[in-house]
């Protein structure tokens, strides 16, 4: 089970959270004007990386808020967690934390 650091409440067990899929997928600003391929990109295509993945979690049984996490999908190690709305932080070269 993952130990997930909520940026608002601190580290909690995965059971308290619900998963929200890949982060930073922005809804088209003017949905009516985009073509079908752009809809596919928005709705269905996912990076699905073997490596660092930016993803949304919601602290369902806690503060209730959405936030984002950088997790390595090979080791399941969480390298960073940050409030929703903030840009994806750059990782330090060893992948173990965020660059300051």
């Amino acid at each position: 089970m993952l130990l997930i650091p909520c940026p608002h409440c601190g580290p909690r067990a995965e059971l308290e959270f619900s998963y929200g899929g890949e982060a930073h997928i922005a809804r088209p600003v003017d949905p009516a004007s985009i073509d079908d391929d752009s809809w596919v990109t928005f709705l269905y295509e996912r990076s699905n990386p073997r490596g660092v993945h930016a993803e949304r979690w919601r602290h369902l049984h806690g503060c209730g808020r959405f936030f984002n996490v950088l997790r390595d999908t090979v080791s399941d190690t969480i390298a960073a967690s940050y409030p929703a709305g903030q840009p994806r932080p750059a990782l330090s070269p060893d992948g173990k934390g965020t660059k300051r």
Partner: peptide, 18 residues
């Protein structure tokens, strides 16, 4: 489970998650 990774080598993005 590794299809996204392999097709990524040819620049193809897929509607897949592992």
């Amino acid at each position: 489970g590794h299809t996204s990774v392999v097709l990524g080598m040819a620049g193809v993005r897929l509607p897949l998650e592992s």
